[in-house]
């Protein structure tokens, strides 16, 4: 081995470059470059079939601001996120606190996290069947208790709450486990001290657990809100009826991902789709910033 090779071999920068080569290639080719290209596309009338596009300046962004369906899909998505995250986080927090008090059993945690591991497509099909207006078991049970059958995915008013419910079913166990991991980091002696001071469960939860959980909760909220904004598989599979167009009935479940997807691949309107994705990216960055800021997520009271 030559002396020069020896020098290169031990130069920290050269070694690091070698180890970063494969991942760096993937980063540049499939993340960095496409991100730049998508931004460029958003200023063109790019068409996927034609494989090219001409510069149109801010046209796509102006169209988007005046597109009622875009704003409709944003409202639909926001409603979905609020319903989904509200129920899911509250339920997951309760589950995590209960697990923290009752058991460390891997079986319990395993069962609760199981739906998270199943493909969303499968989850969608499963609930499509369970919630089928005519033959589904849920309506059968509702009939039995006297509430009467519901349309669920087939009803413009119910489709978003139904989707939020299904997604909650899939993610609540996973979310609970994340919070559970955070609860485990709270020193036990703080609970003992609270008990000695005569604080009950409720008071301990509000005064000890929740404040100390704040950074974890902020992170969990960011992960689940950002993920929830990007719901796609479930809507694509479970809405629109058999053979119908996803996002239905009558666009009442047209979440932003489905709308973007439609423009990019059904309407050959990739430039417009890219512009909407760019707006979504900025929105998600802002949401992340405000959650972290609002909950002071990067600072812990434990330190």
């Amino acid at each position: 081995m030559s002396e020069r090779w020896q020098r290169v071999r031990h130069h920290p920068g050269a070694v690091a470059a070698l180890f970063l080569l494969p991942a760096g290639f993937g980063f540049v080719v499939f993340y960095l470059w496409p991100a730049i290209r998508a931004l460029w596309m958003s200023f063109t009338d790019y068409n996927v079939l034609r494989g090219s596009g001409d510069w149109v300046g801010l046209q796509n962004y102006q169209d988007l601001a005046a597109d009622p369906l875009f704003w409709h899909s944003m409202r639909v998505t926001a409603l979905y996120v609020v319903l989904n995250i509200g129920v899911q986080t509250a339920l997951a927090l309760a589950m995590a606190v209960m697990m923290d008090r009752l058991t460390r059993s891997a079986l319990v945690r395993g069962v609760l996290v199981l739906p998270w591991l199943i493909p969303q497509v499968v989850v969608g099909l499963l609930w499509l069947w369970m919630l089928d207006p005519r033959l589904g078991v849920v309506n059968h049970l509702l009939d039995w208790v006297g509430i009467g059958g519901q349309d669920f995915f087939g009803s413009p008013a119910q489709v978003i709450p139904t989707l939020a419910g299904v997604n909650t079913w899939r993610f609540v166990g996973y979310t609970a486990l994340l919070i559970f991991a955070g609860l485990q980091m709270i020193p036990r002696h703080l609970y003992e001290a609270a008990a000695l001071d005569g604080a009950g469960e409720w008071r301990t939860f509000w005064r000890v657990t929740l404040p100390l959980l704040r950074p974890v909760l902020a992170l969990v909220l960011v992960l689940s809100v950002v993920g929830s904004f990007q719901v796609f598989d479930l809507v694509q599979v479970a809405t629109g009826g058999i053979g119908g167009q996803p996002g239905g009935p009558a666009n009442s479940s047209l979440v932003i991902y489905v709308y973007i997807f439609r423009h990019a691949f059904n309407f050959n309107n990739a430039g417009y789709a890219a512009a909407m994705s760019a707006v979504l990216a900025v929105l998600l960055a802002a949401v992340t910033f405000f959650i972290m800021r609002g909950l002071r997520g990067s600072r812990s009271d434990l330190a």
Partner: peptide, 13 residues
């Protein structure tokens, strides 16, 4: 922080 759909279209292209 980049939504997957943002890079999906260029990656497809």
């Amino acid at each position: 922080m980049v939504p997957p759909i943002f890079v999906l279209i260029p990656n497809f292209v």
